[in-house]
Computed example of a mutant assay.
Amino acid sequence: MAMNKVRITVLKTTLDEELAEEYGVPGLQACPMMRAGQEFYADYAKPEGFCDEAWKAVYQYVFALAHGGDGFAFYHDDWMREPGCAIVSCNDGLRPVIMKLEATDLPAELGYEPVR
């Protein structure tokens, strides 16, 4: 099966003010690394400029969608309304970033020749 790129759109950055007040450093704000409206395209590797910690939290969803996520019940009829789409977040408990992942028809760029 061919691997395609997945579009990652930052929907919003958040800050749980109650938890930040109790556990965060003074003056903690929403994530400074990502901003609403940013778009990235990913396949087998983290896109350039994408937060390392956010990638650790979402790469398994990207990988599944890149390999034909439309067929996964995990994403459709159980969690998400539309097939080939997932709404996910990074794992920062005080200031999570919410992202939309969408399967595309754009072929992945492996960056190397596969062994045949």
Rank of each mutant, 00 (worst) to 15 (best):
M1C: 14
A2L: 09
A2V: 09
M3S: 06
M3K: 01
N4M: 12
N4Y: 09
K5L: 03
K5G: 03
V6W: 00
I8R: 00
T9L: 04
T9V: 04
V10I: 11
L11G: 02
L11T: 07
L11N: 07
K12I: 10
K12W: 12
T13P: 01
T13H: 03
T14M: 10
T14G: 04
T14Q: 04
L15N: 02
L15H: 11
L15R: 01
E17P: 01
E17F: 04
L19Y: 13
A20C: 03
A20G: 06
E21F: 13
E21K: 14
E21T: 15
E22P: 05
G24Y: 06
V25S: 01
P26N: 09
Q29R: 02
P32T: 15
M33D: 10
M34E: 11
M34I: 07
M34N: 12
R35E: 15
R35N: 14
A36P: 07
G37Y: 03
Q38I: 07
Q38G: 04
Q38Y: 11
F40M: 04
D43Q: 08
P47Q: 06
G49S: 07
F50M: 03
C51V: 12
C51R: 02
C51L: 01
D52Y: 15
E53C: 02
W55L: 08
K56I: 11
V58E: 00
Y59R: 08
Y59Q: 10
Y59H: 15
Q60W: 10
Q60D: 12
V62R: 07
V62A: 05
V62D: 02
F63V: 08
F63K: 04
A66T: 11
A66F: 09
H67G: 15
H67C: 11
G68Q: 01
G68S: 04
G68K: 00
G68V: 07
G69E: 05
G69K: 05
D70Q: 00
D70S: 00
A73N: 14
F74E: 11
H76K: 08
D77M: 13
D78Q: 08
M80F: 09
R81Q: 10
R81G: 08
P83R: 00
G84Y: 07
A86D: 13
A86Q: 10
A86Y: 06
S89Y: 09
S89I: 08
N91G: 13
G93S: 11
L94E: 03
L94D: 05
R95K: 13
V97A: 10
V97N: 12
I98F: 13
I98C: 03
I98Y: 09
M99P: 07
E102P: 10
E102T: 13
E102K: 01
E102R: 02
A103G: 14
T104E: 00
D105Q: 00
L106P: 02
L106S: 05
P107V: 12
L110E: 13
G111N: 11
Y112V: 15
E113Y: 09
